[in-house]
Simulated assay, not measured.
Amino acid sequence: MAISAITEQLLAAKKAKGVSFTDLETLLGRDEVWIAAVLYLQASASEEEAQKLVEALGLGSEFVEVLTQYPLKGSLEPTIPTDPLIYRFYEIMQVYGMPIKAVVHEKFGDGIMSAIDFTLDVEKEEDPKGDRVKVIMCGKFLPYKKW
């Protein structure tokens, strides 16, 4: 998976400052996953949000314009991802995608879950057998229109 040179600079500045996504969430009042999407150029920040991010990362004002541009969404290559964590999400969709689709259709009807009117939260759930990753996706249901 290729990461843009701009994202590399943003992440390097974040690391150099010792700032976490949770720290940035507190600063901006936006979810840490959304902030990560901004740094990976998959979401766009407002001018004010971009300015706060750039200042927190100790970067020049030229990054404000970059972070406020409308992104070209979708950064995965068209091949099967090889990063183990990202691959597991691919595997989950391969195994459970059709069952999830069937359950959504049964509960809501023929339609999709929006990825625009959408939130995604990542939580750590402590467990004596090994901590758990809890991913919560919440998207508006959009029924297919008949005409």
Results as ranks from 00 to 15, higher is better:
residue 24 L to M: 10
residue 24 L to S: 06
residue 26 T to R: 05
residue 26 T to Y: 14
residue 27 L to T: 06
residue 27 L to A: 11
residue 28 L to S: 04
residue 29 G to V: 05
residue 29 G to D: 02
residue 30 R to W: 10
residue 30 R to P: 08
residue 32 E to P: 02
residue 34 W to R: 08
residue 34 W to G: 01
residue 35 I to E: 12
residue 35 I to A: 01
residue 35 I to H: 14
residue 36 A to L: 12
residue 37 A to R: 13
residue 40 Y to L: 15
residue 40 Y to S: 05
residue 42 Q to C: 10
residue 42 Q to G: 14
residue 42 Q to Y: 15
residue 45 A to I: 07
residue 47 E to K: 11
residue 48 E to G: 13
residue 50 A to P: 13
residue 50 A to V: 09
residue 51 Q to L: 14
residue 53 L to N: 01
residue 53 L to W: 09
residue 53 L to K: 15
residue 54 V to R: 04
residue 55 E to C: 09
residue 58 G to M: 00
residue 58 G to C: 06
residue 59 L to W: 12
residue 59 L to C: 10
residue 59 L to M: 09
residue 60 G to S: 15
residue 60 G to L: 09
residue 61 S to Q: 01
residue 62 E to P: 13
residue 62 E to C: 06
residue 64 V to E: 09
residue 65 E to C: 07
residue 66 V to F: 08
residue 67 L to R: 03
residue 68 T to P: 04
residue 68 T to Y: 07
residue 71 P to H: 01
residue 71 P to T: 04
residue 71 P to A: 10
residue 72 L to S: 15
residue 72 L to D: 10
residue 73 K to H: 10
residue 73 K to N: 05
residue 74 G to R: 04
residue 74 G to H: 13
residue 75 S to G: 15
residue 75 S to C: 11
residue 75 S to L: 08
residue 76 L to V: 05
residue 77 E to K: 05
residue 78 P to L: 12
residue 78 P to H: 08
residue 79 T to I: 03
residue 81 P to D: 00
residue 82 T to P: 03
residue 84 P to D: 02
residue 86 I to S: 05
residue 87 Y to M: 02
residue 88 R to K: 05
residue 89 F to Q: 03
residue 89 F to C: 08
residue 89 F to Y: 15
residue 90 Y to L: 01
residue 90 Y to G: 04
residue 91 E to N: 07
residue 93 M to C: 15
residue 94 Q to Y: 05
residue 94 Q to C: 02
residue 96 Y to S: 00
residue 97 G to T: 09
residue 97 G to I: 06
residue 98 M to Q: 02
residue 98 M to T: 09
residue 100 I to H: 05
residue 101 K to L: 01
residue 101 K to C: 00
residue 101 K to E: 02
residue 103 V to Y: 13
residue 103 V to D: 02
residue 104 V to S: 04
residue 105 H to P: 03
residue 105 H to N: 11
residue 105 H to T: 11
residue 106 E to P: 03
residue 107 K to L: 06
residue 109 G to E: 01
residue 109 G to K: 09
residue 109 G to N: 07
residue 110 D to W: 12
residue 110 D to V: 11
residue 111 G to C: 00
residue 112 I to Y: 10
residue 112 I to W: 14
residue 113 M to I: 14
residue 114 S to D: 09
residue 115 A to H: 06
residue 116 I to Q: 05
residue 116 I to E: 01
residue 116 I to K: 03
residue 116 I to C: 07
residue 117 D to K: 12
residue 117 D to G: 13
residue 118 F to P: 01
residue 120 L to K: 04
residue 121 D to G: 07
residue 122 V to A: 11
residue 122 V to Q: 02
residue 123 E to M: 08
residue 126 E to F: 12
residue 128 P to T: 04
residue 128 P to I: 00
residue 129 K to H: 11
residue 129 K to E: 14
residue 130 G to N: 08
residue 130 G to Q: 09
residue 131 D to E: 13
residue 133 V to E: 00
residue 133 V to T: 03
residue 133 V to R: 00
residue 134 K to I: 04
residue 135 V to P: 06
residue 135 V to L: 14
residue 136 I to E: 07
residue 136 I to L: 12
residue 138 C to G: 07
residue 139 G to L: 08
residue 139 G to D: 07
residue 139 G to K: 04
residue 140 K to W: 11
residue 140 K to S: 10
residue 141 F to S: 12
residue 141 F to Q: 03
